[in-house]
């Protein structure tokens, strides 16, 4: 298995414009507090990753997060359905804000820093592990441009988007991409399946992996990105992690739990990298916002008494050693 480190200039503001993102989070927090306010946390639930019954909890936006004592995965309590999550986000203006100001797919920065590298990565994976692949399914698509880029590369006979993010609304969609729902995908027929930033926001990540396995032909590839509970951001900041929210980051697996999940479903991991490049920036910001929580810790000292070079070295270190909070993986479906 291999792991990859990306060395580029990548700031949170490039992918999430600060003002609009703050506004989005405020609405989301309010909705979360309302949603979770009237519910019991269900402390008898088990870890979503390893089923362990023992975990510690912290509060975030009216919900509880359990951190599994056994595998360090994070999961929201009480659990709720994907339908409920969708309804919660379905407040007036939310879709437009997300679509037009947050993910703003027309932004050249987002295209350059996020979408194009994803296209390049996917094509490289295809070149290396599945040069004969002709069909691709993208689950939970967020960026029409991503799919359009893949169509334009002329490497696939068929590009299918399954259950695209509903917040895209009636964003124009590339004609050549077919839109389908989960139930309409046949089994054992797909060469490549991509799921970018989906696992962390679904009710049952294991079910998604199981479904991907069933759709892939033996030898087919799963290409996945997701947030990880064992990244610097979440392990150092816990409840103070700026982007932790119980709707879009409701199930964060640890690196080990994610790896186990894939292996358990008969996948062979070809790549498992933590290519997230925002941990250091986010930890620095959270420490500024919540000084009392971090003073006199090693991290406080490090962030306040060492210069930008040390911070950059730390970010590279966490990538190299699989300690950043966003990962990407390629896994091959085994079996016949």
């Amino acid at each position: 298995m291999k792991r990859v480190v990306l060395r580029d200039e990548f700031r949170e503001a490039d992918i999430r414009p600060a003002g609009a993102y703050h506004q989005y989070q405020e609405i989301l927090e309010k909705e979360c507090r309302r949603f979770f306010g009237g519910r019991q946390p269900d402390l008898g639930a088990r870890c979503r990753a390893c089923q362990a019954a023992l975990y510690s909890v912290f509060e975030r936006w009216g919900a509880l997060y359990g951190r599994c004592e056994q595998c360090l995965s994070l999961f929201v309590l009480p659990q709720f359905s994907d339908e409920e999550a969708r309804n919660l986000l379905n407040v007036p203006g939310m879709g437009e804000l997300w679509r037009e100001q947050i993910i703003n797919p027309s932004s050249p920065e987002r295209m350059r820093l996020m979408i194009q590298p994803r296209i390049d990565w996917l094509l490289e994976v295809k070149d290396q592990y599945a040069p004969q692949a002709r069909c691709l399914i993208d689950y939970g698509s967020k960026y029409p441009q991503f799919l359009e880029g893949l169509v334009q590369a002329k490497e696939f006979d068929r590009v299918t988007s399954v259950d695209p993010d509903w917040r895209l609304g009636n964003t124009p969609w590339p004609d050549s991409v077919e839109k389908l729902s989960v139930g309409s995908i046949g089994i054992n027929g797909t060469d490549l399946m991509a799921a970018f930033d989906v696992l962390e926001r679904v009710h049952d990540p294991a079910a998604v992996i199981g479904w991907m396995k069933s759709c892939l032909r033996p030898g087919g590839l799963a290409i996945v990105t997701t947030a990880l509970s064992t990244g610097l951001e979440y392990l150092v900041l816990g409840a103070k992690a700026p982007n932790l929210n119980p709707i879009e980051r409701r199930n964060l697996f640890s690196l080990e739990a994610l790896s186990d999940l894939l292996t358990r479903h008969d996948f062979e991991l070809l790549e498992l990298s933590t290519t997230g490049r925002l941990d250091v920036e986010l930890v620095a910001r959270a420490m500024e916002e919540h000084p009392k929580d971090f003073q006199r810790t090693f991290w406080w000292y490090f962030f306040h008494h060492r210069g930008p070079e040390a911070l950059q070295a730390l970010q590279e270190f966490v990538q190299q050693h699989q300690l950043s909070s966003h990962c990407r993986l390629v896994a091959r479906r085994l079996g016949s």
């Binding site: 298995m1 990859v4 480190v5 060395r7």
Partner: peptide, 10 residues
């Protein structure tokens, strides 16, 4: 240009 680095363990 930006680089990606791939490490192999085996």
């Amino acid at each position: 240009p930006e680089e990606s680095e791939t490490y192999y363990d085996e």
